[in-house]
Amino acid sequence: SEPGMDMAARTAEIVFSLASNIERNRAFYENVKSRMPAYGRDADDLKIMPGIVLNVGETVAEAKAKVDYLIDKMHPDVG
C-alpha cells in the first residue's frame, strides 16, 4: 500500500517483498527506495528482502484450496 511504502521509507531497516514476480519485486524496490530521500534517509539504509510463501498439501489441489481459503479470509485493507 502507499502508506505502507511511505512508512517503510521513513522508518524501516528491513522490509520483505512478497511480489509475485521479479518485475514486481523490482518495481517495489525502486518505489520504496525512491521515497527515502524525502525523509532524509539514504537508500542504502534500508534492505529489501524477498519474501517466500510456501503452500503445501497432500496434493496440488489441496494446496490450492488452502491458498483460496487464506485469500478468502484476508481483510481487504491488508490484502
Rank of each mutant, 00 (worst) to 15 (best):
A61T: 11
P37F: 04
F16Q: 10
S20F: 15
D45P: 00
E58N: 15
L70P: 01
Y29G: 02
D77T: 08
A8C: 04
D6G: 04
G57T: 03
K73P: 05
D77N: 11
P37Q: 07
K73W: 08
G57H: 08
S1C: 03
D42F: 02
R35G: 04
V32Q: 13
G40F: 06
E30M: 08
A63L: 03
G40H: 09
R26V: 03
M5L: 04
N55S: 13
D44F: 08
N25S: 14
S17F: 03
D42N: 12
H75V: 04
D77M: 10
H75D: 15
L70K: 09
A27Q: 15
K66M: 08
P76Q: 07
G40I: 05
A9S: 01
L70D: 11
Y29Q: 06
R24A: 10
M7S: 06
E62K: 15
E58C: 06
E23F: 14
I71D: 07
S17N: 15
A19T: 12
A9P: 01
T11W: 09
G57Q: 04
S1W: 04
L18D: 07
V67P: 03
E13G: 05
M49W: 14
G57V: 04
A8M: 02
N25A: 14
E23P: 02
V53K: 09
A8E: 03
A38F: 00
I14N: 05
A61W: 00
V56W: 10
A8P: 01
G4I: 00
T59P: 12
I48C: 06
P3D: 05
L54I: 12
M7N: 01
A12F: 05
V56D: 09
I48H: 15
P50K: 10
M49T: 06
E30P: 00
I52K: 11
K33R: 13
F16Y: 15
Y69D: 02
V15I: 15
P3V: 00
P76C: 02
G4V: 01
R26P: 03
M7P: 00
F16T: 05
I48D: 11
V15E: 09
D77A: 10
M7E: 06
Y69W: 09
K47W: 10
E23L: 10
G79V: 00
M36P: 07
D72H: 13
V32F: 12
P3M: 03
A65D: 13
P76Y: 10
V15F: 08
S1Y: 05
R41C: 06
I52H: 15
Y29L: 08
S17W: 01
G79Y: 15
G4T: 01
D45S: 14
M36V: 00
S34I: 05
P76V: 07
Y39W: 08
L70W: 15
E2S: 03
P3C: 02
D42L: 05
N21H: 15
D6E: 13
A63G: 07
A12I: 02
D45I: 01
L54C: 13
D72N: 11
P37K: 03
A38V: 01
K33M: 12
Y29V: 02
E62Q: 12
L54Y: 13
A63Q: 08
N31Q: 12
I14Q: 06
V60S: 13
A38G: 13
